[in-house]
Amino acid sequence: MANYINGDEVRITKVGTCLVDVEFYSGERFEGLEPRRLFPLSGLRNYITLLDSDLKEKAVIRDLDRLMPDSKKAIEDCLEEYYLIPRITAVLNIVEKFGVLKWTIMTDRGERTIRIKNRHSDIKTLYDGRILVRDANDNRYEIPDVSALDKHSQKLLSYEL
């Protein structure tokens, strides 16, 4: 059975890249756990699993926002390091040549040109309206809300979605 963390019964401290120490107020203590999302697509702040170095689960945080501020920050920082899903803020250009789509995009991590092999399987619209893009190297990108993009980007995307 999963060992759920509901709220402020733990103190979580960041000890390295993507690593935290977890100390329960009951006295139980785990060192060097790696936080990962159980629902990386649909639940960014809920159900964060904490794995030890053998990838065995030690605890699950039900809701990130119910942790104490310092613990919350430690987990947020780790997740920020672990998950790199750049948010596309503008689509600058789309070229299709020889069946490969070449998108030049502006993301929150900088500008990048990506290749998309198959528009049918590599561009997915989720039910909440988010769009997930996978490039030829299996990197992921996200468009949180197409309608928030500029007109030019929306026009370019309208042919692909």
């Binding site: 790199l84 899903i85 990197n139 992921r140």
Partner: peptide, 22 residues
């Protein structure tokens, strides 16, 4: 990791992360 990776080496039992990449 997810969308990114690190090159890590171990020396004296200590982890050294030296490079980040997609």
């Amino acid at each position: 990791m997810y969308g990114n990776a690190r090159l890590v080496f171990l020396r004296d039992g200590k982890k050294n992360e030296i490079l980040s990449f997609t």
